[in-house]
């Protein structure tokens, strides 16, 4: 069975928090173009921002010369955002989602961003960098809205 893949666009930015607004704008345009309403578009932008902010924070601690590549495509009936980076491998899916009541009571740091990503997206797949590429990849999928 053939897999239909339509590439909407790719954006590459340095792994720094002060340029992530560019990613947000790019993903917002891609999601809106793919038929998501304003609310869902904003949610998708937020999910991607959470992932990129994580990468930028990790990259900053280790090395400032890292990059993030965001590719957006439509595959079958899925909106697919792939976020690649050449920082140290870090699987955000290893972070457990907080119970919000406990989160408020104990105020432990972390977990909120990935909780948002899990809430917004239908499927998340993390592939740590293989030695041949040096890039980690996180793929976020969300079913396209019914036209």
């Amino acid at each position: 069975m053939s897999q239909h893949k339509y590439i909407i666009g790719t954006l590459s930015v340095p792994a720094m928090t002060d340029v992530l607004w560019e990613v947000r704008e790019f993903v917002s345009n891609c999601a809106a173009k793919s038929g998501f309403d304003e609310q869902q578009t904003n949610y998708i932008v937020l999910a991607v921002d959470e992932i990129c902010a994580n990468i930028a924070r990790h990259a900053k601690e280790k090395n400032a010369s890292k990059e993030i590549i965001v590719s957006v495509s439509v595959e079958e009936s899925q909106f697919v955002v792939t976020i690649e980076d050449n920082a140290l491998p870090f699987n955000p899916l290893d972070v457990p989602s907080p119970n919000m009541v406990d989160y408020f009571r104990t105020f432990r740091n972390g977990g909120l961003g990935i909780h948002i990503v899990r809430t917004v997206m239908d499927n998340i797949l993390y592939t740590p960098s293989a030695s041949h590429s040096g890039y980690n990849a996180l793929t976020l999928r969300k079913r396209l809205p019914v036209a």
Binding site: N42, Y43, M100
Partner: peptide
């Protein structure tokens, strides 16, 4: 609305 929706969705 765009902000309230994030508060709602995250449980905040």
């Amino acid at each position: 609305p765009i902000i309230k929706e994030v508060f709602d969705m995250s449980g905040f």
